[in-house]
Design a protein around this nucleic acid. Structure first.
Lengths: 233, 233
DNA sequence: GTGACAAATAAGTCTGACTTTTTGAAGGTG
DNA sequence: CACCTTCAAAAAGTCAGACTTATTTGTCAC
């Protein structure tokens, strides 16, 4: 997805970040910069830089004479891609996946509606191409090929919406889709109904039918919710 | 909203962050740590910590032998509360406000639907109280009192949804609502129809009527979109 | 033109000394 | 006993300087 641990402070983050988001240090836990620096065998300067980054993510708070205290989960910057990645990699994975899928179910239909209004001809073409790619890989256990086109499809929708906040969720959605294929249960070929829906969404966007694009995308996300047993009784 | 510039590195961020998000340094611009340290009259250590934070927000990228280069806007962590605050405080304000309002229009209806299912009795009570507070302050230019209850109302909806990602948007929504009252055109008393809608949403949530809560909230957000001339033709 | 090599550059790292804020305890006073 | 003041310790914060390393760029020979 993106930045692997660059530099010493990056390596420290790759260890400390996951540990904190995994709840290894409960909220209120106090760490000391010097001790951490010793533990990771880095200088205080490097350790301080790492702490500053964790602080900017609202994972910890650094106070004089007290130390570096872990903040309660409710205060974390849960939209930070790095935080999302750490949580997806840890024990929190199922919960994080559910949160993100609910988020998708809210965002993507609206994004599709906007895409139907704002998408360029090129984006429409790419979208159709992706949908066709999904169809082509929808049978015969070609899950990887399917996934690539699925991720591209949703990324284009989010980008074509013209809303920068939606566009920035492209990576997150890709992560969720990849997770479904690689980690969750996805042994069989994808649901034919879902594939058809994607083709229809591409059609609706091409034709500028915002209401239909929104409604069809809503059906797709409802399917995603059902896969995780997040029902609407 | 939150953390004012704590420590020297915080002060540097309070100046550099807004400057970058305002586009004062176009994408690709190269800064040098040493020069910045001189300019802000701080040590290199402090400057490095500030750069690390900007880097974690994906505003800049630090590379050896090159310097600190400003990244294109499309890569910024636009969900970072600090980045949102910086942009709301700068020339980007109108665009940021539009982005956030569209985001609200996607999130809040879904959140209200979930709140109707998950809200505790206490949350329902608080919600009703807020709605009544809005009614009580809806006439006679009591804009500040109205705003306080409006912000609380939407925060409760987002929290009661039970989704952590929704909950974390409470601050952002509050910021948007406050902006509307303080900076944008909002001289007259609020629209009576909007006030009624809030009361009805509180009712629907209390009664556990998810579909109605969602639909009513959608009407509220449509109103917010119309205020900014973001139409659905 | 191409490839290898050397120099320059700016970030990265480490260390040690010093400052500042905060807290908790000790001790004095009503 | 309660309350306030004072003081000392603890940990983060800051700074300055020396050194390392990766990367780019330019040069020279082939």
């Amino acid at each position: 997805m993106s930045t692997p641990g660059r530099g010493l402070h990056g390596h420290v983050l790759d260890t400390l970040g996951p540990a904190i988001t995994a709840g290894e240090y409960p909220p209120g836990s106090v760490l000391r910069t010097d001790e951490l620096a010793q533990r990771f065998d880095v200088s205080r300067s490097v350790m301080r830089e790492a702490v500053r980054v964790l602080e900017s993510m609202h994972l910890v708070e650094s106070r004089r004479r007290v130390g570096v205290t872990v903040r309660p989960k409710a205060e974390w910057n849960v939209y930070d891609p790095q935080v999302i990645r750490w949580r997806l990699a840890g024990a929190d994975r199922p919960g994080q996946l559910r949160s993100l899928t609910v988020l998708r179910s809210a965002i993507e239909p609206v994004a599709a509606g906007l895409a139907a209004r704002h998408a360029t001809a090129e984006q429409c073409a790419e979208l159709t191409e992706c949908a066709l790619g999904m169809v082509a890989n929808s049978r015969g256990h070609r899950l990887e090929g399917y996934l690539v086109h699925d991720m591209a499809f949703h990324r284009i929708i989010l980008t074509a919406s013209g809303n920068e906040m939606f566009a920035r969720l492209g990576d997150v959605v890709a992560e969720v889709l990849a997770g479904r294929t690689h980690h969750e249960v996805m042994f069989e070929d994808p649901d034919p109904a879902a594939v058809t829906l994607h083709v229809q969404v591409a059609e609706a966007v091409r034709e500028g039918d915002a209401a239909r694009a929104e409604e069809l995308t809503r059906e797709i996300t409802v399917g995603a919710l059902q896969e995780l047993d997040i029902l609407a009784p």
